[in-house]
Design a protein around this nucleic acid. Structure first.
Length: 650
DNA sequence: CTCCTCCCTTATCTGAGGGC
DNA sequence: GCCCTCAGATAAGGGAGGAG
């Protein structure tokens, strides 16, 4: 139950103190209490509680106030309560109307407050506070001169600073070997617990070899310098013990052991350990260092390694957050345990700025990463990276001078439309996409296709990527790349017959089939989507618009012939548009894919075996000259928003 | 039946001690 | 001098049970 205070809170001067005296209205807590819109969010908070039953909940002002005090004083939960007990100003801040000796709440309540008042609500409150202050200052301006008139003139105002950082979690630096060892120890404890009630029935306890396993772990963990092979061997051994233990746990459950004998923590831990085993096993088998959603802490499995370009500390563990700063007000835009790509948020943040303030910022200040395509190619500048005057007037050099002197670094001026394809420090070629449509080939779904020579260089690795725009979904399988004529299919992809699916298929050299149907891959018909299919050892990765969509098992060697290969057709025909078909002889990383998906290539990139821009013809732009033969199909002129035209000066 | 308080458990860090 | 283990300290979370 949530019971609202009947009486409105008296002003600070009326706060009852044990001795003579008043609270000062100039005290920082009194001032801060005035800034916070307590009442505006009380209703939202009250909704969390049942209407009638139960003891009345602590008031919203007390909950939020206590959390603010804790963060402001940087104290522990318990110390915060002590502080509140001793300080009448703090008691006023959390909404009491007279001083009391007893603590008004118990420290473990902060645990509940944190759950009730989440980041989203804090963000809302923050925005409200800023809006209030801005409205206040706007009113003052209005008194001086007519604001209405001024507002209309203002198109760009203020400075928007965007950056991302990491809030490190309190965990010890994780190593693969350490995690596996910890997981092994935990499984041993679980086995002990599960075995206990079955002692009479089973007689024999499953063997865990824990002493030997520990010795083997210590042998490597204690060493100062460990060679790659040694570590790999040690990890392999721990994996074996862990596998055995997990098997034993399954057997115990089969024999009648109940998971009820485990604590909630242990149950969760067991699930985590199973995942850890899978991840580590696949990394060990494939000799790779990375795996999606990699677990680095058994007790806090949501923590991910956050890779940041910091010297000396390239990887941090904790939540990643992106922050924007406007006129000294700071907003938390996104916080996530997963490693997101902040560069995607630039345009979004600029639009949000306009929503909040009614105009675009005069300047946007961001890191190098936000220029998500070409920073690798130039990368000469240090410090501040980009300047976008968003009024479309790129030739205005006065503001350039102003800001340039303040911040140093190199300023470039860009049009908002070119946020993505920004080119180093040089001015972007003045290309207006509206006026420069590009040719795109349309396939009719009946008999149109392109034939090329089989493009794979080896039968172990590939990256196939292309942009497609299906004209029809959920009717039949419609293959758009691949080949089916010999004994088995060569690697191929289809639009599926239902559920907006993407279907891929491949075989290994002995005829074992490796395929999958990925549901809800396509958002809708007539919409461009970028697909990248990567084969890395025994793993397929499918990326949609640069984001990892699925990981599936792949054959060691895939079946391919030395004959030919098709675009727009497999065993049936594709209806829609295709452009930018690329086939590489290696497994490209996600970074490489996202960096190159939005612009044309030169054809000289390393590992590029065949490249069909399909911009007017089916020629192969690589030196392999594997030119395609077009069977049917019509060319249309399109404004491809996702694809920056090739610039001749590169 | 719900919410709070009290007490306990769990997770992590720190520094002493000691082996290599 | 490095890096382990161990014990102790600190902090937050969990859960039983009582109050409303």
């Amino acid at each position: 139950m949530y019971r609202k205070e009947e009486q409105p809170l008296p002003p600070p001067e009326k706060f009852e103190l044990p001795f003579e005296g008043k609270l000062s209205p100039n005290n920082r807590w009194v001032i801060m209490a005035e800034l916070i819109p307590w009442d505006d969010f009380e209703e939202e908070y009250a909704k969390l509680f049942s209407a009638e039953k139960g003891a009345p909940a602590k008031l919203f002002r007390m909950a939020l106030g206590t959390l603010i005090i804790k963060e402001k004083l940087r104290t522990s939960d318990r110390e915060t309560i002590e502080q509140i007990r001793e300080n009448p100003y703090l008691q006023y801040f959390i909404g009491l109307n007279c001083y009391q000796q007893e603590p008004p709440l118990e420290s473990s309540m902060l645990v509940h407050f944190r759950k009730r008042i989440d980041g989203e609500l804090i963000n809302k409150i923050n925005k409200k506070i800023v809006k209030r202050e801005i409205d206040k200052s706007d009113k003052e301006v209005k008194k001086k001169d007519c604001l209405q008139e001024k507002r209309e003139k203002i198109k760009n105002k203020g400075k928007l600073i965007l950056d991302a950082t990491c809030a490190p979690a309190d965990i010890k630096y994780p190593t693969d070997l350490g995690i596996l060892n910890q997981a092994r120890i935990e499984t041993e404890r679980i086995i002990d617990n599960l075995y206990k009630p079955l002692r009479v029935k089973l007689r024999k306890k499953p063997r865990t070899s824990r002493i030997i396993a520990r010795k083997e772990y210590l042998k490597v963990a204690k060493k100062r310098k460990v060679s790659y092979q040694e570590r790999r061997k040690a990890i392999g051994k721990q994996l074996k013990y862990l596998k055995k233990n997990l098997g034993n746990i399954e057997d115990l459950i089969q024999a009648g052991a109940s998971l009820e004998n485990l604590s909630k923590r242990q149950k969760n831990c067991l699930e985590t350990i199973k995942k850890v085993y899978e991840q580590q096993q696949s990394m060990w088998e494939n000799n790779t260092q990375s795996v999606p959603q990699r677990i680095v802490s058994l007790t806090q499995p949501h923590i991910r390694p956050i890779v940041r370009g910091k010297v000396g500390k390239p990887i941090e563990f904790g939540a990643k957050l992106s922050v924007s700063c406007v006129d000294n007000y700071v907003f938390l835009d996104k916080i996530s345990w997963e490693n997101f790509n902040e560069s995607c948020h630039l345009k979004e943040q600029v639009e949000k700025y306009k929503e909040t303030f009614g105009y675009y910022p005069e300047s946007v200040h961001v890191d190098k990463v936000y220029r998500n395509i070409d920073h690798r190619l130039t990368g000469k500048e240090e410090g501040l990276m980009a300047y976008y005057p968003l009024n479309g007037d790129a030739s205005d050099s006065t503001s350039n001078k102003n800001h340039g002197t303040i911040h140093g670094g190199t300023w470039t001026q860009e049009n908002l439309e070119f946020l993505e394809p920004l080119k180093g420090t040089e001015k972007p070629a003045n290309v207006d996409r509206e006026q420069n449509p590009q040719s795109v080939l349309n396939f009719d779904g009946q008999d149109d296709y392109i034939e090329i020579q089989e493009p794979f260089e080896n039968n172990r690795y590939f990256t196939i990527s292309l942009w497609i725009n299906p004209a029809i979904l959920n009717s039949n399988f419609r293959g758009f790349i691949g080949k089916q004529e010999e004994a088995y299919r060569q690697p191929g992809m289809w639009v599926g017959p239902s559920g907006n699916e993407l279907h891929y298929d491949s075989y290994d050299t002995s005829g074992q089939r490796y395929f999958s149907i990925l549901n809800n891959f396509f958002e809708s018909k007539d919409k461009w989507v970028h697909i990248a299919w990567v084969k890395e050892n025994t793993e397929y990765k499918i990326y949609r618009n640069g984001e990892l969509f699925a990981m599936e098992p792949a054959p060691t060697n895939f079946y391919t012939t030395n004959t030919n290969y098709w675009l727009g057709r497999v065993d049936n025909f594709f209806q829609g548009k295709i452009t930018e078909v690329r086939i590489w002889n290696k497994a490209r990383t996600q970074d490489e894919i996202t960096q190159d998906m939005n612009h044309r290539l030169t054809g000289k990139e390393e590992g590029l075996m065949a490249y069909y821009p399909l911009n007017g013809d089916a020629s192969d732009s690589t030196s392999n000259n594997n030119h395609g033969t077009i069977h049917g199909g019509t060319w249309t002129q399109e404004n491809l928003e996702f694809l920056e035209p090739l610039k001749t000066n590169i």
